[in-house]
Design a binder for these strands. Sequence first.
DNA 1: CTTTTGGGCGCG
DNA 2: AAAGCGCGCCCAAAAG
Length: 558
Amino acid sequence: MSFLFIDIETDNSEGFGLDPFRAKVVTIQIMAPTGNKIILKDPKSLDLFKTKLENNVVVGHNLKFEAKFLKYCFGITLKTVYDTMLAEQVISGGQLSGYAKGNSLKDLVLKYCGVNLDKTEQCSFKAGEELSENQIQYALLDVEYLPEIMRQQQAKIKLLGLENIIDIEMKALPAIAWLELSGINVDLDKLGEIKTKVFAQKSEAEAFLIKELAPIRNLNSSKELLEVLKGKGFALENTGPKELAKYPDNPIIQALKSYRQATKMLTSFVNTMPEFIHPITKRVHSNFYQYGALSGRLTSEKPNMQQQPSRFRDWRQIFKAAPGNKIVAADYSQIELRIVGQLARDPKYIRAYTEGLDLHKETAAQLFKIPVNQVTEQQRDMAKSINFGLNYGMWAPGLKSKLKADVGRDVTVKEAEKFIKDFQALYPEVTKYLNTASQKGLQRLEVKTLAGRICKFPNPKDAQAQGSVKRESKNLPVQGLCADMLKIAMGNIFLALEPRGVKFVNTVHDEVVFECKAEDAEEITAIIKSEMEKAGSKFLTLLPCVCKVTVADFWKKD
DNA sequence: CTTTTGGGCGCG
DNA sequence: AAAGCGCGCCCAAAAG
């Protein structure tokens, strides 16, 4: 295999130059390692290059873009890639993740080659028009510096021991292009049904609140709301959920919560979702940032497919398989706690997961000193809050309000402290691991996942920021390893299922969602489950990795 | 007028 | 002494 350095210019004159379904490709520039360059002004001649592009390492900057256009417009599937943008994000230890500035091609050309690229021609390309000399020069310069950038990046990757993460990311890239092209189908009838229900909920709560809180002007103003509530005798610091939990049975507070839930549903989800249905494909194509978060997790926007309500009854039913298809959703079972068990080598965690016990129930039994079979649902929920809270570096006052808000249980700070102490005595290995992690993280200002991903912290400028670094140091190795596993699985599932016409319709941190022909669902399910567990088991060597798969007409979890 | 900040809340 | 992690989106209010 050799390298091919590529770039594509598309027609942005109608404002959707990034949209593979609508924008026309104007030129494709390809450069061989020898430096020989070709500019294809008639992209139909690309057929000659199909085999080369599919069987060499394709190098480019932000190749998700090229991958989508090559696939949709020319039926070419990139499989082996090296993306200089993604590589730079990996090398930066996640500091260039998400919306951070500094990872454009212009930035890298300046950084690695000392050349200031002129980008004024970037949006000048129009389909069907003769290329100007300037445009040709511009287009060719976009591939010119890629080999040098890659060469210098490779040296850094080796120095930092990031080969494995680069491999994971580059193999995941084609899967992300597949994900964005696939899109997800939305059932507008179901959406309408939910809209009616939510609107009624809002109207009822709104009428009640306007009457009870008169003369309030704007229920959406937390500032005004706090004033009025104080005037009515409520002792509140703010109007957030933890404060409102002080008055769980008050009808005004209950109505406020109902009003807020309904308005959140309407403004963030119900009313906006139809606007995202693509005019050509009739599906919703979110943007996914592959290196979206410091931890290596993806982020999603327009719409954010990772925050679609799961607790609001039936909402996810709007994401429905097209006729004749099924939705296959696969998620890792309790993956974060399993990772903690592995990293801490905690015998009790290992035993619980190896023997298929319920860790939260086991924890509750020990904390409340009762037999496992007498643990109540509330006691289990409390243990769950403690398990998670401690992983994130929670303190007694935080646990107190968490238990009140989530479980409805009143405990004093002293009692919360006792829970934490008891938990730490119960799981000394986990406690030791978390303490060491936060100390080392603060000292080095970076943490690593088991797969080798580096999460680098900006210099903490005050005590508060140092506290954040300590807490993130406990959590990022866990969150980050989960992202590593999921990306390995995505890359392998892409190779196995994309050629079979399966659609990759969503992913949410520990979950992947696909759409396939109903008759294929059983076979597809087995492949997904196996790839997910295989990826997880690379790292979870002391306890089992379990992936749960659900097949249904819409997106759901069992 | 537009942009930024903060409260609040959706997800894992 | 501090007071749970990672994100994106909506609205109101402040800042430019």
